[in-house]
């Protein structure tokens, strides 16, 4: 552990000086305000391709923040996060395309469904050792995908098509720019919720459970309960993101929710720094922008991500975002 706190100081002077400059509250607010203005104004100067990429980046920010609650805050490795994303997307897809339900009304249903999925997966398995949990979530992720591929109501291997795009205050959301703002709003909401959760009583309980499960339990924290909360809240993030994903794409197929999707989201969380909101946002952006910038190695991006993840976890386990000096 001593190595972790020392290495960034010597090896990354720029990162450290940025961190020092960001330390006072005033400077942070300035940066946040600048970033907010940039995020609001950017689409006015961007073409459709850039809008598409940026909305995708905000979308991954939501997913990564959701997984961050499970992995970063509570310290549980979830390798099947795409399953929750799938539950949300399919709930919206099925309800709008086959039952003609209004898009906005499907969100609460999707929230309930993903919570139920979180409880079904987490309830029996959160008592297990952490590494068993990782493999069980992997198995569940596969089960959800296979169900989506084989059931009739989910459209089988072809998936669902013709999901209707929603209206908002009379405005039909069908332009790239509309979805940019929708996903930006969603990402801001996710950041706000994450921030509030991190500094809540529950957030402190997660931190305690993550650092020392036995000590936490001795202090009267219900460790299975705390983990289950993390699981269910993370699931809701994924489910809601899935609703909007279905509405944006208008078509979903089981192959969107393969194991690689779960791994990709996890890479975003690990890359930026587990448990830190700015880090996770940077990680999500790196995830989306990297293959776009380096088009020619697009097919090898998973290999590059894998090597980067290995190097980061071995040499800088706290991620890109600088760690707080203790």
């Amino acid at each position: 552990m001593a190595e972790q706190t020392q290495s960034p100081r010597g090896s990354k002077p720029i990162v450290q000086s940025v961190a020092r400059w960001l330390a006072p509250q005033r400077n942070r607010i300035i940066v946040l305000a600048v970033l907010a203005v940039v995020a609001m104004v950017l689409p006015l100067a961007a073409n459709n391709y850039m809008l598409e990429v940026l909305s995708n980046a905000w979308f991954y920010v939501v997913l990564c923040l959701g997984l961050n609650i499970v992995v970063g805050y509570a310290g549980l490795l979830d390798l099947g996060y795409a399953a929750f994303f799938a539950v949300g997307a399919y709930t919206t897809g099925i309800l709008t395309s086959q039952f003609g339900v209004n898009f906005w009304l499907t969100i609460p249903v999707a929230v309930v469904c993903s919570m139920a999925a979180g409880i079904i997966i987490g309830g029996p398995t959160l008592r297990l050792r952490s590494d068993y949990l990782a493999i069980v979530t992997l198995g569940f992720g596969e089960i959800v995908r296979i169900c989506a591929r084989n059931l009739e109501i989910t459209g089988g291997a072809g998936g669902l098509i013709g999901i209707e795009r929603p209206h908002l205050f009379g405005l039909h959301l069908n332009q790239a720019i509309h979805f940019y703002y929708v996903f930006l709003a969603l990402a801001v909401l996710a950041c706000f919720c994450s921030y509030r959760l991190q500094h809540s009583r529950l957030g402190r309980a997660w931190q305690y459970v993550r650092e020392d499960e036995d000590a936490a339990e001795a202090m009267g924290i219900n460790r299975v309960g705390a983990k289950l909360y993390a699981y269910v809240i993370g699931a809701v993030f994924g489910g809601v993101a899935g609703c909007f994903f279905a509405a944006k794409m208008t078509a979903i197929s089981p192959e969107t929710f393969m194991f690689q999707q779960s791994v990709l989201i996890l890479v975003g969380v690990v890359l930026g720094g587990m448990g830190k909101i700015p880090g996770v946002i940077i990680g999500a952006f790196a995830l989306v922008l990297f293959p776009e910038v380096f088009r020619e190695i697009g097919s090898m991006r998973m290999l590059v991500f894998a090597v980067v993840m290995l190097v980061i976890i071995l040499y800088r386990p706290e991620g890109i975002w600088p760690a707080k000096r203790s």
Binding site: S130, L303, M309, L314
Partner: peptide
């Protein structure tokens, strides 16, 4: 990684698995 937290070593193992499968894919 043997003395690191369990989460780190699990992620290491996952990263190794990704390097192998994506390396062969490439």
């Amino acid at each position: 990684m043997l003395s690191a937290p369990r989460l780190s070593i699990l992620i290491t193992a996952l990263a190794v698995s990704m390097v192998l499968s994506n390396g062969v894919m490439a």
